[in-house]
Computed example of a mutant assay.
Amino acid sequence: MTDTPAPRTDVPLMEMQDVYVSYHGDISILNGLNLKIPEGKITGIIGPNGAGKSTALKTLYGFLKPQRGEIRLAGERIDGLEPYQFIERGIAYVPQNRSLFNDLSVEDNLRLGCWVFRKDKARMARALERAYAQFPILKQKRKDMAGSMSGGQQRFLELARALALEPKIVMLDEPTAMIAPKLSQELYAFIKALPEQGVTVILVDQNPRGDSMSRKTRRFSSWSSTMSMEAGRPCIPLICRTRRTGRTCPTCPSRSEAEEAATGSATSNRKRLPAPGRLST
């Protein structure tokens, strides 16, 4: 009698392995990035402008294709998939720039989030009811044009639309950018509770300073890890034991090196990249 092997529990829900990504073939952004996303946690990707945070998220979601490396979902290789195929696998994405149809009502925007199951009227009704329960302000404004709402309210609508799919993973690219502090706190509180609802979160944010990032990490008690990206290369200065003791770490870049590299990368990108578009960082 042969024993059935126990299922593996060390496989992350999503993973990037030695991923290289460039824009236009010669503008290198990600250079050997490795990232593991555990299930039921919030994983943060933190770094300054030009570091490659948004590029990493777009690569995870199939908007950009790696030149080298692999992306896996529960062990399945997915780096060749198109973005719409990620929706079928229960992955939602909320970009940094607004993605609403401003001339459509709040409710119509939510209905568009249900497009993949539009023929299931009962499920669509449940999705709308759930969105209004999560964000009561959307119910109050359901007949208003989406473009008439404040920036924070629009972000609530984008998140509600993404969650209408009942995803197992949601990717958020700087969700509180250009939002009033009070609404930002409400949004962070909502995001913090998502793992309790069975949703794994990948959160991109811009805050390279260790003290501020430490406060944010404490606020998110369910964080699995916080990866800091400096100019396209990952380091983990907050959890590096060598740096905590005040010594120089041979692996992590120093603050001056990281700031200089990030500034150079951002300047180079501004000179060489075309006008901002869907895939601009």
Score class of each variant (00 low, 15 high):
E230C: 13
Q134F: 12
R209W: 11
K141W: 15
T242P: 06
Q96H: 10
I91S: 03
M14P: 00
R118V: 11
Y93M: 08
F190L: 10
A92N: 07
I191R: 07
F190N: 04
S225Q: 14
N269Y: 12
M145Q: 06
G113E: 12
S221P: 04
Y132A: 14
R255Y: 10
T200E: 09
D18K: 11
T200M: 05
M14K: 04
T9D: 10
N269G: 12
G90K: 09
G32V: 00
T226V: 14
N109L: 13
D26W: 09
T245F: 11
L35F: 11
A162G: 04
P208C: 09
R270M: 06
R130V: 08
D18E: 07
K119Y: 11
G90F: 08
L159N: 07
P38H: 05
R270Y: 04
M149T: 07
D173F: 01
Y188F: 15
Q185N: 14
I179H: 09
F156M: 15
L157T: 14
R68S: 03
F135P: 08
K53Q: 06
L203H: 04
S224Q: 09
E260W: 04
I239D: 09
T281Y: 12
A133I: 09
A6N: 05
N109Q: 13
D79M: 01
I137V: 15
G40I: 12
I236H: 14
L194S: 06
E230M: 15
M14R: 05
K141Q: 15
Y188H: 15
V170D: 10
L30S: 02
P253M: 14
E230I: 10
T2W: 01
R272Q: 10
R219Q: 11
S222K: 08
D144F: 01
G277A: 07
M178P: 01
N31H: 00
D18C: 01
S105R: 12
R118L: 11
Y20C: 04
S265K: 07
W223V: 07
D10M: 05
E15W: 08
K139P: 12
L165K: 11
